[in-house]
Design a protein around this nucleic acid. Structure first.
Length: 593
RNA sequence: GGUCCCAUAGCUCAGCUGGAUAGAGCACAGGUUUUCUAAACCUGCGGCCCUUGGUUCGAAUCCAAGUGGGACUACCA
């Protein structure tokens, strides 16, 4: 790999030392802004004092030195103390020739120091279908996993399904009471939606009960405790924990409906998992950890017999880790599960949890406790926290029915893709199967890109009334660019020779090479910061640049064979970068659209 | 009350490890196709980068305080 910045930096360090006896270990070398001539820029102000020179003189002297001592640098100019350096064109040709036909451009092959990383994402409850918030989780988790793989790591994608608890009992109870034996088959409803319907039904009936009780003169709090439905539901949960046949069997049946539904949605979305955990298997984990922590005096027993940890010295509060009746709280299970995972995967280096930012505090506490218990991998646990998806009227609430359902949204996007494609009328000779594949590719491209281009940690707004765009800074724009390139390559129908370089480059050609050059470092940054948005924004810039090039420079009509060959080469490499980058976002690119 | 996150164009977002005149897309007004896919390209319009202080040669970017918005602060999951 060629390292332009590194090369310039080393030369600069030498220059500063020899010319002015200034010793530094690092000099920031940035890309030159497009409005100036040059490839890389050095800001000289920081050395002005030590060198006792004016900025312009300093820049001039440094530039002279660099030209003399570094043969890759051929020209420079100084503007207001900024030293703009121009690299030898051969440097770029030489880099570019290394990318020829490299189908894994931008990806690192598996490294010797590869980390085995477990990345948990999705982790749905089995009482309702997936909504827009889950989509962000799924897309983010999947993409980060792909990005980490592209950085040469081994990634185990995992999903811990929250398949037990009071929320599932609510759906079960409501189905028992109001369901009349309805099944996905009898109703034609997708299983997760059917179960979700009864979750909502429970809530409605429950609210009604409370209203009645309040009218009878009880306070709201009392009413919530007295509600017969809720009492019955809690009994159901106890029965489930005791393994009571009828309850367990109903639970199995309804969960199976949900899994069938989820699988469909996952398949549509194109996300998958290497290992699935179920909370019904893990929810009792962690109790022995509490014992261990007690003996290590990390935890203490409170007067009421509950067990807790005091984290006030860390700026956090006291946290109960085991109830006074000896049952687990949620964090007990999380402690147990994390330890279990590191036991089951001895090579595991890092554990990443993709969970919304409302749980920031929870994970801070979790990691702190693991650290205090003496697990040295605790510092390698990472909460991949992301902001909520909000609607114009505020947060989504599934019980209040203000959610954007994932399946519905996917279906709507599909229809929009169909309508738009047909309107443009470029696909007359597509078969039915090819068409459906295209609609799905484009609609998913639009949706995934829409969600992933936003910095994960920021909350994002989704307005269902304004459908997701297919023009401009969107997934389909980038997919279109890819299809366009493929069309040119098909028509060219010729072998592309390597190492045939034109005498001079068009400015856009040079910019394209530089942009391609950046891809590798963008992948690295995205991996280091777990941020797919970096990839998304990068690849948009490349696509835009390509479209300008496509508009300004003819490719197939070029008479000079060397130039034509070079441009085809550039096209092919751009298409590969687009395809590889989009793959990291979980987005496929079409050959034609 | 405490802790954490966020604030950039009418809207949705980049830029934030300090650097040149703060960028895109959408929307709005216009233009480009006998020529490789117009889901494209080009032009215009649009900004006290929340406020005030501080650090610095230099602040949208770092620090502090304030304002506004959100989340969390369960023997819920």
């Amino acid at each position: 790999m060629y390292q332009a910045q590194e090369l310039i930096q080393q030369a600069l360090i030498k220059a500063l030392h020899q010319l002015y006896q200034i010793t530094v270990t690092q000099v920031a070398v940035q890309k030159t802004r497009p409005e100036f001539e040059g490839d890389f820029t050095v800001v000289t102000f920081q050395f002005v004092k030590a060198a006792k020179k004016s900025p312009d003189v300093l820049a001039q002297e440094l530039g002279d030195y660099l030209i003399q001592h570094e043969n890759q640098i051929v020209k420079f100019n100084v503007i207001k103390g900024y030293l703009n350096l121009v690299l030898n064109q051969d440097f770029w040709f030489s880099y570019f020739s290394g990318t020829q036909n490299n189908q894994t451009i931008g990806y690192r092959s598996k490294r010797s120091d590869a980390h085995q990383i477990m990345l948990e994402y999705s982790s749905p409850n089995t009482n309702k279908p997936l909504h827009l918030g889950h989509l962000r989780n799924n897309l983010l988790g999947y993409s980060v996993a792909e990005i980490l793989k592209a950085n040469g790591h081994e990634v185990i994608k995992t999903n811990i399904v929250n398949d037990r608890g009071i929320h599932i009992c609510k759906s079960m109870l409501a189905w028992q009471k109001f369901g009349n034996g309805e099944t996905p088959a009898s109703s034609g409803m997708k299983g997760d939606h059917l179960v979700g319907k009864y979750y909502v039904a429970f809530d409605k009936a429950y609210k009604k009960e409370i209203e009645l009780l309040v009218n009878e003169g009880y306070s709201k709090e009392e009413a919530e405790k007295k509600s017969p439905l809720m009492l019955e539901c809690q009994q159901m949960l106890r029965d489930w924990e005791d393994g009571k046949e009828a309850v367990v069997s109903l639970w199995k049946t309804m969960n199976a409906w949900v899994y069938e539904g989820f699988d469909k949605t996952y398949k549509t979305l194109g996300v998958d998992f290497d290992k699935i955990y179920y909370e019904s298997n893990t929810y009792l984990l962690g109790k022995e950890v509490v014992e261990e922590g007690l003996s290590k005096k990390v935890f203490y027993k409170k007067e009421n017999n509950s067990i807790a940890i005091d984290l006030s010295s860390e700026g956090l509060d006291e946290k109960v880790v085991l109830r006074s009746d000896g049952t687990s709280v949620y964090i007990t299970q999380d402690l147990g599960t994390a330890i279990e995972r590191f036991k089951a995967y001895p090579k595991l280096k890092q554990l990443i949890y993709t969970v919304g930012n409302e749980q920031d505090y929870h994970f801070k506490v979790l990691f702190k406790i693991l650290d205090k218990l003496g697990y040295d991998w605790a510092k390698e646990c990472y909460h991949l926290s992301y902001g909520m998806v909000e609607l114009p009227e505020g947060k989504m609430k599934s019980r209040e029915g203000t959610v954007v359902d994932a399946d519905e949204l996917l279906q709507e996007m599909f229809e929009t893709a169909r309508a738009t494609t047909n309107e443009l009328g470029k696909v007359d000779n597509f078969s039915e199967e090819e068409l459906n594949k295209l609609y799905s590719m484009v609609s998913l491209g639009a949706l995934k890109y829409f969600i992933l281009k936003v910095d994960p940690k920021k909350k994002m707004l989704f307005d269902p009334k304004e459908s997701i765009d297919f023009n401009g800074h969107t997934g389909p724009f980038i997919q279109y660019t890819h299809a366009r390139i493929q069309s040119v390559l098909r028509r060219a129908n010729q072998d592309i020779k390597n190492n045939h370089w034109p005498q001079t480059l068009h400015p856009l050609e040079l910019e394209l090479i530089k942009s391609i050059y950046d891809f590798e470092s963008v992948v690295k940054d995205a991996g280091d910061t777990f941020n797919p948005a970096l990839i998304a924004n990068y690849i948009y810039e490349l696509a835009k640049l390509f479209n300008r090039f496509y508009h300004d420079c003819s490719i197939l009509k070029t008479e000079d064979e060397t130039v034509k060959n070079f441009r085809l080469n550039l096209c092919r490499t751009c298409a590969q970068v687009i395809s590889n980058a989009m793959h990291l976002l979980g987005i496929q690119v079409p050959e034609r659209m």
